Simulated assay, not measured.
Amino acid sequence: MNTAELHTLTGAYALHALSDEEHATFERHLRACDACVQEVRELAATAGKLGLAVSVVPPLELKDAVLRRIAAVRQDPPQTPAPARTTGRRFRPGRWSRFALAACLAAAAGLGGIAVWQHQRADDAQQQARAAQQQSEQLAQVLAAPDAKATTGTLKDGATGTLVVAHSRNQAVFVASGLPHPPDGKVYQLWLNDAGTMRPAGLLTPSRTTEAVLLAGPVNRASGMGITVEPAGGSPAPTSGPLVLMSFATT
């Protein structure tokens, strides 16, 4: 493995997604590469913030609600997977470990779907949980991408924001930490910066001070992102000055 390839392993190393051989090789590389050391530190912090952003404390009544549903919901029969086709391609432990870790992270982050599940009718619980799981999987995949790059900035009242972009997936994730609640009837809206034109990229949940969001839309035409305060429901174009503008990390 050459030096150029080693530089791409920062994200997988930060998420403990390397094989034993790759891990040992990359740690030797870290002893002589300050840039990779800094990038690993930033990605590890981002992964931690994502975990905090989606974690919730289940209410006391959740246990009773689940126990009541057990008697009324029929268990699905076990699924027998179809035999895998042999393609002749060589198995690569490193790639599999990265995929497995991303799936594990997504499963853990998907527990955030409990907050949605408990406020919906039981008939809607599975659909809501599946949507939350898909969102969490995409968040984890962006973080685990070999080319994931992170930028951290200061917002307002001591809040921080971390922007992670993975051009190989054409996606970006934004993590807000310690952000004050917006005024009543307002919401924080995210924008992608396309050569000075701001494109809507999602909303932050007004009731949360820490949250991870997968930015809506491709990032290949964008150079960064911004945040504004908008009327509830969001706006097609910014109606206020940006709280912060962040550029995508390039190194």
Rank of each mutant, 00 (worst) to 15 (best):
P206C: 11
R199C: 08
F248M: 07
P242T: 04
P200T: 11
P231Q: 03
G224A: 04
T228W: 02
V213E: 11
V219D: 11
L215H: 04
E211K: 05
L204F: 11
V244G: 04
A222T: 10
A249H: 12
S235I: 04
S240Y: 02
S223Q: 15
T205S: 15
P238M: 00
A249Y: 08
E230C: 05
A237G: 04
S247W: 07
R221F: 06
L203C: 10
V229H: 02
A249D: 13
E230F: 07
L245M: 15
A237Q: 14
P242E: 08
A249E: 13
P231R: 09
L214P: 06
I227S: 03
P242Q: 01
P206N: 01
R199E: 10
R208I: 11
N220F: 10
P218G: 10
L243H: 00
G234C: 06
V229R: 10
I227L: 10
T210S: 15
S247H: 09
R208A: 13
A216E: 14
P218T: 00
V213Y: 08
A212H: 04
M198K: 07
P238Y: 04
P238E: 03
L215V: 03
P218L: 08
G202I: 03
T210Y: 06
E211F: 00
L243S: 00
A249G: 15
V244W: 05
M246D: 06
S235P: 01
V219K: 08
P200S: 05
N220V: 06
V213N: 05
A237Y: 10
P236N: 07
R221K: 15
P218N: 02
T228G: 01
L214F: 14
L245P: 04
V244D: 01
R208F: 13
A232Q: 14
P200C: 09
G233Q: 04
G202M: 07
P242N: 02
G224P: 12
T239C: 08
V213S: 14
L243M: 07
A237R: 12
L215I: 04
A222V: 02
P218K: 11
P238D: 01
G233N: 02
S207Q: 10
L204Y: 10
A237E: 13
L215Q: 10
G233W: 03
L245Q: 12
